[in-house]
Nucleic acid binder design. Structure first.
Lengths: 218, 218
DNA sequence: ACAACAGCGTAATATCTATTACATCTTCGC
DNA sequence: GCGAAGATGTAATAGATATTACGCTGTTGT
């Protein structure tokens, strides 16, 4: 047997386990899904699970960190399209809402929070890879705007927290209430962007236009 | 034996169980604290636990809902002291921060979120008793202000969500990160109040003074 | 075709803990 | 003190599940 085929076979198995585990973790939670469930769903055998992931925690680690992404990419994409700060913020709000309210993301957040009680380090790493990085890139965005002469009411890192908080609070509500009376309308989103624009002071720079974010500003 | 003494005895036991359970739930989480732990800590016996609470879930129910309170009282207190809207909002921000960042509250929120996966109804009831009620009273506050001629940038219910969200996002971060790099400074709080004041449009009503909230306005 | 070996399936292990059962002891009114 | 109701402590029950062990099977390279 060549290394190649072996690698492929194992890899397919690995993928199957991960997909099955994610599906089950999301639906039942970590504690309530048993390794037996995962094997039943993915095929393969318990022995292979242990070979590939070491133990149950090992699968969780892989499942969570495969899905956990920061919003840095979203920030970059929204900024690159240019336009007024208000426009950029609105685009960003749309993609943040889509990302943070993805039911799978919310379910994983629930799992991480539950697990954080017994494994603080795990939760912290998750926080780093998601929130902290997103905050950093937002902060940078606002700092860039400041450098280009846009006046803001508060330091960039405070604004970054506030902007992200607009969406995090929804995630939190969703995590607890499981979408009772959740309103994801565009109107509501507009109101939030508007609110942030007013609160941050971006409004007064109405005609500022961020054409394209390059190494040398406008 | 009179009913009175019996009631006292059972009641003391009940209290002891609840205190012990809360202490342990907060420290270890629900799943990881065993009924044996609770009995060890509180004294008494397993049989009595079952007599009083039915089962393990029964204790959780009592522990959580005893501690779960809405912020409605805080809203009323802050409003009753009067002053400008900005002053009222700042007072409210101070007491919200104290309440929501109480480590015991955060720990209970973690437990509720964890449990919400297998018992959605439990989590919804919690949400009702805390967030929904707080939102209602905030909405009422803003609606009152509007009635008194203060102009706002957004409908009261949206503003209520936004104001509460300022603190909920902190709870969420704390729940995941377990207080890594958490900044509870007064400065940060002031920045948030300021942000809300600007965003909501309350700023333009600078000299509005809400003397006292009675049945017949000013 | 065959020998080696990686994955498979099953079963055994080992532990943990909610829940129940029961015999003993306390408490408290009388 | 006494007796009964109720609390206590202990032990048994019962079910679940992570983890390990092991013999079997199909694939693969020669």
């Amino acid at each position: 047997m060549t290394d190649q085929t072996e690698c492929d076979r194992l890899d397919r198995r690995r993928r199957a386990f991960i997909e099955a585990a994610r599906e089950l973790f999301v639906r039942l939670g970590y504690e309530r899904t048993t390794l037996g469930d995962i094997v039943d769903r993915a095929g393969g055998s318990l022995a292979t699970v242990y070979k590939l992931f070491g133990n149950k925690e090992g699968i969780l680690e892989v499942v969570v960190f495969e899905k956990a992404s920061s919003g840095a990419t979203l920030v970059r994409e929204a900024a690159e399209k240019g336009g007024t700060p208000h426009e950029i913020l609105h685009r960003l709000a749309v993609s943040f809402q889509a990302h943070f309210l993805d039911p799978e993301v919310v379910a994983l957040v629930r799992i991480v929070i539950a697990r954080s009680v017994s494994d603080k380090d795990f939760a912290r790493r998750f926080f780093e890879r998601t929130a902290t990085r997103t905050l950093d890139s937002l902060q940078q965005l606002f700092a860039d705007w400041q450098d280009r002469g846009i006046e803001l009411n508060a330091p960039p890192h405070i604004l970054a927290e506030l902007f992200l908080g607009l969406f995090v609070s929804d995630v939190h509500a969703d995590a607890i209430s499981h979408r009772v009376g959740m309103d994801n309308s565009l109107e509501r989103l507009r109101a939030r962007t508007q609110f942030f624009v007013m609160g941050s002071g971006v409004l007064e720079n109405k005609n500022a236009n961020i054409s394209f974010e390059g190494p040398n500003g406008l």
